[in-house]
Design a protein around this nucleic acid. Structure first.
Length: 800
DNA sequence: GCAAGGTC
């Protein structure tokens, strides 16, 4: 039996389909899918790996002894620690071994690149470990097409040990630098926080220079010196259509100059059209999607790159789009574009567009700048019913399908109009765009501005002038990176790969180095970069990657060895650590104040200290606490399972600090920290003025907890902890009545009628009241508040 | 408890 080993399942299947005489049979070895077939009178098996099946790590003995617990003192040892290769995909390895035992020949058909050579070399080592004498060949092909595959299998080669070594060098250096610097930052921070397992502060060859890009942009923005300018905007009207216009002087450098224009226009009610210019322009259809351009386009539709890839992966796995990890932007000739169009025809929303394209006859798809032959550009492969899937999944599919149709469509022709006006000697102009020929824009509406239509205007015509206003503006610094832009910048600098960039960015968010989109660094992120640029400049620069690339080329060409390159890298790192370790205290201090700064959400209204987002291990939840604790005991509740961001603005209604709450699958919202703020869910209800039993004059009001449950709380809540539970359903009516226990009585109107309750659950008269007085007077309320779950039931059942 | 690179 001949065994073909490729990098992934889809490649294994396609290779089997090409090589097979007849149709290959899909089977499983343990849980791994394989494809068996006949060729040249022999049995063949094709198996796909899952990328790397081995991973590097430090030896366990090392971890067990001195390095198991991270500590600063052992970092210099870790710099020179051996690096082992350990199994990562045990299931695949087991299946591979099982097949290898029976193989008479093994053909390594992993991707034709450095990582592919390494993956293939690892697979070869596993094969040989169970079948030492089996011949192992390597085939190299740059497209999984009949011609390429047949050619490659006819020219069997061997694994390039040098290229595989180059890959291993990358693995070693990434692990050693990543682990050592990460442990250093984490431990330095911990010396000051005294939390044994606090946050990990990571660093790496790709993530750290990427973070630095964000920080550099932020610093550039901070150093930016904005200039004031003024603009004058006016409006005309014709036949009821409003025509917004700008003064021909786009920017007035002084306020006086703009004022002068406004003054000159005083009283004017008419203007003259001094000219109308029309220009036609054609807009070419977009080029086919590769991974990077898909992520960029989806980012403008609100998808984070990591999310785009997750959704694209699931669409690919269910057969609706092609392989999503590609560089290629040119459809290969072998791709049957017409067949794909016919498939899309089944989607009602696409039918008309498909017909328009098919009627054109010969198809001339657009071509992007990158032409590789590993996979075709990302395109639809099936018709997806919008009703059958999650809206987000369909949104991405729709983008991919429409993009595909757009690449086969005609250019759009846009007619631009510029109309010039004169009002008492002041020149204005207005612009409009009209689509003359929709072309691809009929099917692909993404990333386009809305047309501004101008009514027909003729030179010399007089139109109504509606007036003008001036507006003060400032020049703006370069914008922060969006996730899509950052991906593109990383690609330009050679940071990461198409398959990892989105994960790298997501990692920066997960580590709380950055937040929001457009991306803004946190103090933590800034401080990590600050600390590293001083003494570990190498890991903060994209140069580390480009130099590593050059060294790996040298290894691949046998001009250098893995040992010397890794050894040299270790020495560089040792030098860095010699400088960093002695200043761990200072670095830790910087990191501590940075993480404290990030936790700030405002100023305590009681003591004036900072309010910090804290975590309570006891309740396993976050809350806002005063940094003046224990002297100041101000706390606020926070919703669970959420992330929080500080906001500078105080609550416009009650003046309490606010936070931004980000919850999974929910829109970010601004939340006032005050539990009795009227901005909270539900109406503001005063239960009793100056009625707090502590006698400090606080009002009792209905409040809403972080998760939206209502209860009664004292308005002096910063000092007074008085609170009473309330049933969660029914309208609350206040009364002037006071229970014999001294607490106010309220009436709760439920669907089944009103009932009076004493709001104190500890009311000593509760049981008596329930027994003696009308049914459902007090007790249900008490239960309702203290035990949420039973409350609704009990109130429902017990109502009078 | 570390990285970056594959792929699911």
């Amino acid at each position: 039996m001949r065994l073909v080993v490729s990098e992934k399942n889809i490649a294994a299947r396609r290779i089997a389909e090409i090589l097979a005489v007849g149709k290959p049979k899909a089977e499983k070895v343990y849980t791994t899918p394989v494809y068996t077939f006949r060729r040249d009178g022999e049995d063949w098996v094709s198996i796909g790996l899952k990328g790397h099946i081995m991973e590097v790590d430090f030896p366990e003995t090392f971890e067990d002894t001195e390095l198991k617990k991270w500590n600063l003192g052992s970092l210099s040892t870790l710099v020179r620690a051996p690096v082992l290769k350990l199994p990562k995909e045990r299931g695949i390895i087991q299946s591979l071994k099982s097949l290898a035992k029976k193989a008479e020949e093994v053909i390594i058909a992993t991707d034709y690149d450095r990582e592919g050579e390494l993956i293939g070399s690892d697979a070869r080592d596993i094969v040989v470990s169970v079948n030492p004498d089996v011949p192992v060949f390597r085939v190299r092909f740059s497209a999984i097409t009949k011609g390429e595959i047949e050619r490659a299998f006819a020219e069997q080669d061997v694994i390039s040990e040098e290229l595989a070594q180059a890959g291993e060098t990358r693995q070693d250096i990434d692990l050693i630098w990543g682990a050592v610097v990460t442990r250093y930052l984490t431990l330095a921070h911990q010396t000051k926080t005294r939390r044994p397992f606090g946050d990990v502060l990571s660093a790496g060859r790709v993530q750290t220079p990427t973070l630095k890009l964000i920080i550099d942009r932020e610093k550039e923005r901070e150093a930016f010196d904005p200039e004031d300018y003024w603009v004058v905007k006016g409006a005309f009207e014709k036949d009821g259509d409003r025509i917004p216009a700008s003064h021909a002087t786009e920017r007035f450098k002084s306020e006086e100059a703009a004022h002068a224009v406004i003054a000159a226009l005083e009283g004017a009610s008419e203007g003259t059209v001094t000219g109308v210019k029309r220009t036609k322009r054609t807009v070419k259809p977009p080029v086919p999607f590769n991974t990077t351009s898909l992520m960029a386009a989806a980012a403008s539709e609100g998808f984070a790159p990591a999310k785009t890839m997750r959704l694209a992966e699931s669409l690919y796995m269910s057969g609706y789009v092609s392989y999503p990890r590609v560089d290629n932007t040119v459809y290969p000739p072998s791709l049957d574009l017409v067949a794909i169009l016919k498939t899309l025809d089944a989607v009602p929303a696409y039918h008309e567009h498909v017909q328009v394209i098919l009627r054109k006859g010969a198809l001339t798809p657009t071509r992007g700048p990158k032409e590789t032959t590993d996979h075709p550009p990302i395109h639809p492969t099936g018709a997806l019913d919008p009703e059958s899937v999650d809206a987000q999944v369909y949104k991405l599919y729709n983008l991919i399908a429409r993009r595909f149709m757009a690449t086969l469509s005609d250019a759009a022709v846009i007619e631009g109009t510029r109309a010039d006006f004169d009002v008492t000697g002041q020149p204005f102009y207005a612009r409009g765009d009209v689509v003359v020929k929709a072309g691809f824009r009929a099917v692909y509406h993404y990333g386009l501005k809305k047309d501004e239509v101008l009514p027909p205007l003729a030179e010399g015509e007089r139109v109504a002038f509606l007036g003008a206003e001036m507006e003060a503006k400032q020049t703006q610094p370069s914008a922060r990176y969006s996730q899509g832009k950052l991906i593109q910048e990383m690609e330009k600098l050679g940071l990461g790969t198409k398959a990892t960039r989105h994960d790298i960015i997501q990692g920066l968010y997960d580590r709380r180095y950055v937040h929001d989109d457009p991306i803004e660094p946190t103090c933590k992120g800034r401080t990590v970069i600050e600390a590293l640029t001083t003494y570990a400049d190498r890991i903060t620069s994209p140069d580390m990657t480009s130099e590593l690339e050059a060294e790996m080329d040298a290894i691949a060409n046998a001009r250098a060895s893995r040992e010397t390159v890794v050894g040299h890298s270790r020495e560089l790192l040792a030098g860095v650590m010699d400088k960093l370790v002695p200043i761990a205290e200072e670095v830790g201090e910087l990191l501590k104040s940075a993480t404290d700064e990030d936790a700030k959400v405002g100023v305590c209204p009681k003591s004036g200290h900072d309010l910090l987002i804290k975590f309570s291990p006891k309740t396993r939840s976050s809350f806002v606490g005063c940094s003046g604790y224990p002297e100041c005991d101000v706390t606020y509740p926070l919703p669970k399972n959420a992330k929080y961001a500080a906001l500078a603005e105080l609550c416009p209604v009650c003046g309490t600090p606010q936070v931004k709450v980000l919850q999974f699958k929910k829109k970010p919202r601004v939340m006032c920290l005050s539990p009795i703020c009227p901005t909270k869910k539900g109406p503001e209800i005063l239960i009793r003025a100056a009625g707090c039993p502590t006698g400090d004059g606080g009002d009792l009001r209905v409040a809403y907890s972080a998760v939206g449950n209502r209860y009664v709380r004292c308005t002096n809540y910063e000092n007074c902890k008085t609170s009473y539970p309330l049933p969660q359903s029914g309208d609350i009516e206040t009364t002037d009545d006071t229970c014999e226990c001294g607490a106010p009585i309220v009436i709760v109107h439920t669907k089944k009628g009103p009932w009076r309750i004493c709001i104190d659950p500890a009311c000593p008269l509760k049981s008596a009241a329930t027994k003696g007085a009308k049914k459902g007077k007090g007790k249900p309320a008490a239960k309702a508040g203290t035990k949420k779950k039973t409350s609704t039931k009990r109130t429902g059942g017990k109502k009078a």
